[in-house]
Design a protein around this nucleic acid. Structure first.
Lengths: 183, 183
DNA sequence: CCTCTCATGTAAGACGTTACATGATTCA
DNA sequence: TGAATCATGTAACGTCTTACATGAGAGG
């Protein structure tokens, strides 16, 4: 259900073939969303069968023929109906780091701090990437600009939290050391 | 791979049966994570077969016997190894609302604003719930407390962004109306 | 020379969700 | 009377990921 509407949405901008759609999704929804050909190509085929898309095949030499997809009126109508529905459920956040974090109390403190340090580096890099892309987003409509802003906001919130977490965990360690030193 | 380590982690605190594990996960990871029996019971069975868990059956009248699971040394070892690995990938965020939001430019503005309004209400409710649970979290270790704090932080970031978004979208509308009124 | 980009696709498997079946007890 | 809680489990069905196969041309 996920990729389907992303594809229909993207084809509102311009006709595309599968390879481009993947690139586009990675660029625009990237850092939070991954797609792969195993989802895209079967979906395109299925949607064509349902009359939501139309294909024009473009011959190429030395590589597989391109299939340029465009959205049909039926596709537009279905997309529109989806767009106006109230979202079926809330945000799902799954993060292998956070999953570990809850249980760090059962592990080694030094190792936990190293993993946190690594996450800070990761989010710093992401932040830089997002800032670099900002100019590109600014040319788009309000909604796309706002989504870009959300990416920055959440990134910032995570970074602040990670730094606060690092500090609190280190302090806890100091307290323990003081207690055992006092004995 | 997801539920497995959550189960091993929870069994570090106390022995539990499947029903309780589901309740626990919903309470502790809830609002971002959903689990169902279709995942839990087969996983428990499999993990018992691998020697990571041990069962004691508790007879009951009028309902299925309880199976109280406890973690084995092998389970603890495998959990520990997982805990200390650097997380395999970044945060994955999937949100049917945000998926729509990017494409709101192709839909009806009034409808989009109504959906945003609804999201604000939703996050307000969640915020209240999280605040109510804070006291319970404070009794736990640093890591659990920090995760609770992150929940609040991200909730707040989303709310601020939603309100900013609502305002910007409404203003855009006013500008358009002024332009057409001036003609 | 090697890696990246372009371009399509399939097959197998992992993972997740929904719905069903059973059935007593407790609470509104 | 009806719904929720307790308690286990399976089957069918979706979705997602990984790995494979093919192969030319561009750029470092």
């Amino acid at each position: 259900m996920g990729v389907k509407y992303a594809i229909l949405g993207l084809l509102h901008y311009t006709d595309m073939h599968g390879y481009q759609i993947k690139k586009h999704i990675e660029h625009n929804f990237g850092h939070m969303w991954t797609v792969n050909y195993g989802q895209i190509y079967p979906n395109l085929k299925k949607m064509e069968g349902e009359g939501l898309l139309r294909t024009r095949e473009v011959a190429q030499q030395g590589r597989p023929n391109k299939k340029r997809y465009s959205i049909t009126d039926k596709g537009r109508k279905e997309f529109r109906a989806w767009l106006e529905k109230t979202p079926e459920r809330g945000m799902l956040l799954r993060d292998p780091f956070l999953m570990r974090f809850v249980f760090f109390g059962f592990g080694d403190k030094e190792r936990s701090l190293a993993i946190i340090e690594d996450q800070i580096r990761q989010y710093d890099l992401q932040h830089a990437k997002r800032v670099k892309n900002l100019a590109r987003w600014q040319k788009q409509d309000v909604y796309v600009r706002l989504i870009a802003q959300l990416g920055l906001d959440l990134n910032e919130a995570m970074l602040n939290w990670l730094k606060k977490a690092r500090q609190e965990i280190m302090q806890e360690q100091e307290t323990r050391e003081l207690v055992s030193a006092a004995r």
